[in-house]
Simulated scan of single mutants.
Amino acid sequence: MPHSVEFLSLPFASHFKLGCIRLNSARTLNALSLEMIEAIFQQLHAWQEDPYVVAVLIEGDGNKGFCAGGNVVDVYRSIAEQNDHGAFSLQYFGREYQLDQLIHEYRKPVICWGHGYVMGGGMGLFMAARYRLVMPSTRLAMPEIKIGLYPDVGASYFLNKLPEHIARFLALTAYQVNATDACELGLATHYLCDEAYSELLDQLAAGILEDNSHEHVAQHIERVLHGFTMSDDLPLLKPELISHEKEIKKVMSGDIVNIHHSLKSFEVDSQSLMSARENFLKGSPLSACLILEQLNWGKGKQLAAVFERETVLSVNVSVHGDFCEGVRALLVDKDQKPVWQHSTVLEVSKESLASYFNPAPTVTELRSCQPN
């Protein structure tokens, strides 16, 4: 893992420091490997105890995106080729969710520069940050239905902060949210120009803080960000989700069978919304059922409980669900022809669905062997 993640110390308000985490694997759209996750986790713990590092910036290398997700091919190979019965899957997903939770609960302000593609595991990092910056290039998405998984990395927590029909639509269709919609929905906190990156760092470095208190650090960050969001040069994108909210609400009502029937006949004057419809219809029927079940369960749940349940679900789905077939078809063989376990959501029984939420004896044994 040479240099797949870099750690920098940048100037912040005179003599303080901004810790910078740079995902540095542009070739893979900065997909998160277990080694990257472990390195970031350890560095964040070190910075949390450093009085001179008063805030953290997370960014991704390359012009295509911040992070297109987790390195799920490694999980696939551990199951399909090494037949490890989910040992690596538990290690990978467990540590990824621990990292996401650490960022959610971090004692210092975390800023995430969400340019380009921010998907899957990238959304886990992005949504955990206090300041979530988007720009015209940004496309936020949870595309797990396409690989037989489900929106994880805390999505059962943060998607449930959205209106129910929007949360369902994003989770079931892999729809890519633009910057305007992201801000309107609260997925993002600030809208900047893509070209503002260097100036942002310069302005964060300028000025003087009286002390390193969380309040004063946050005030400085917010003053700087406010200036960028008020720029006359900021190109505003047309909101799409908001403008089609009535139609989306209609097709996302009821249970998964109702949603399936509604999406089959869904027609709007938007290519991206129609592409989202196709993602659902071609995606894993098992995943669709799991997604709705998990979203319904997650309403009102605390973050720790969400990650606990997601860990169990992710291991079960990766070992026994459509995950391996989805990753094979989309990312390994790339034939784009997954053979799902069920041809339609109507075939997924309630008993089968429930089994994915129960820790199997194998998973329970594996978890007992994992380090804290």
Rank of each mutant, 00 (worst) to 15 (best):
M1F: 05
P2Y: 05
E6R: 12
P11D: 12
F12N: 02
F16S: 08
L18V: 06
G19D: 08
S25P: 02
L29V: 05
L34F: 11
M36H: 01
M36N: 11
Q42P: 00
L44H: 03
H45P: 00
V53Y: 01
V56M: 06
C67P: 03
G70H: 02
E81T: 06
Q82C: 09
G94N: 07
L99C: 06
Q101E: 15
V110N: 04
G114H: 05
V118N: 04
F126T: 04
M127R: 13
A129Q: 04
R130C: 05
L133Q: 08
S137M: 12
G148W: 01
P151L: 08
V153C: 10
V153T: 09
Y157M: 03
E164Y: 01
T173I: 12
A174H: 05
A188F: 07
H190D: 14
S198F: 12
E199Q: 15
L201G: 02
A205T: 07
G207C: 06
I208F: 08
E215W: 07
H220T: 02
I221G: 02
G227W: 12
M230Y: 07
L236R: 14
L237G: 03
K238V: 10
E245P: 00
E245D: 13
I256P: 00
H260Y: 13
S272H: 11
M274Q: 14
A288L: 13
E293W: 02
K301H: 11
A304T: 14
E310V: 08
E310I: 05
H320E: 13
G321A: 07
G321S: 06
D322A: 09
E325M: 05
D335T: 04
V339Y: 04
W340K: 02
S355V: 04
N358R: 14
N358T: 15
S368R: 14
S368E: 15
